[in-house]
Amino acid sequence: MITPRQRAVVEFVLDNLVWFILAFVLAIFSLAIPNFAQPGIFINIIEQSTFVGVMAIGLAIVIIAGNMDLSVESVAGLTAMITGILFCSRGIGIGLTMTPEWLVLPVSLGIALMVGGIIGSINGWLVVKLKMSAFIVTLASYIWVRGMVDAISGGRSAQDLTPALRIMGIETFLSIPLIAWVAILCFVVFTFIMAKTPFGRHITMIGGNPVASFRAGIKVDRLIIITFILSGAIAGVAGWLLAIRTSGATANLGIGMLFRAFAAVVIGGVSLKGGIGQLPGVYAGVLLLSTIQTAMNVMALPVHYTQMILGALVLAALLLDTVKLAIRQKLA
């Protein structure tokens, strides 16, 4: 038998496991890899975590609610392309400008949020109203939305983003780029929403037991649709940031991000079973992935190794999920 005290400790470690792993990995790399332990590298890790990080927030919320959203990567690709086409001056960009100039910032962000939100609402509607499997619905969106990117771009790219937007990717605050701050801000805001508001509480309870939530008068269907809309809109922001960072968009921008976002979510302690997980853990998961990626860059490992290690990490993450569930069940 274990005492409540011991249980609390084990629970705490399980809840924050990924932060411990991150600290451990950072320490190992700093000791083992020459030139790793320097501010530039750490800032690079944070900056790299921006896009997958933002995308992972929406994905995590949908998974906590007990569903799945595979479309986030393509949604980001689409909003990046739309941002690129509208606000780039070369390639397929039409070079839209506004007066005052800074107006493009909220307008482009608003468009990205709206496009993502619309695709999310289609996903949510199909899942809730037509009772289709979220996996299949969002897999289909993953495919058709990427198809749409190809269609509107004709396979070509947009370059030279308007400076008013570019500035977000260049300017820094406390030597961290503004776009990385956007990601951090997103994490703070959504962590608060998930942990401190009835909305977040209800999402978590729906992921744990939708029937009980429904009986308690929680509007389950409505909330599930909202999670999909949120996920789409947040993926839209990820695409917007991606366009800013690349100063444009290509038809295959963002490909491969889904698996990293997915890995980060699972590594971050979100259970695919639903109802379990916290957003700070997800951010740690993203940071962990970027750390490993950066270390491999520093060591100049060939790209195919990166692929293999990421693949192994996804598997390891799923295994970890199972192991944690088993430990929790033992505790019970």
């Binding site: 401190k196 509480r201 308690a216």
Partner: peptide, 26 residues
Amino acid sequence: CTNVDVVANFFMGREIVKKYFGIPVL
């Protein structure tokens, strides 16, 4: 909902909130 604590279950769907700038906080 077994994935949340006793308090959360007790108040399921009827949480006590206080609004700050229109945002309900548990």
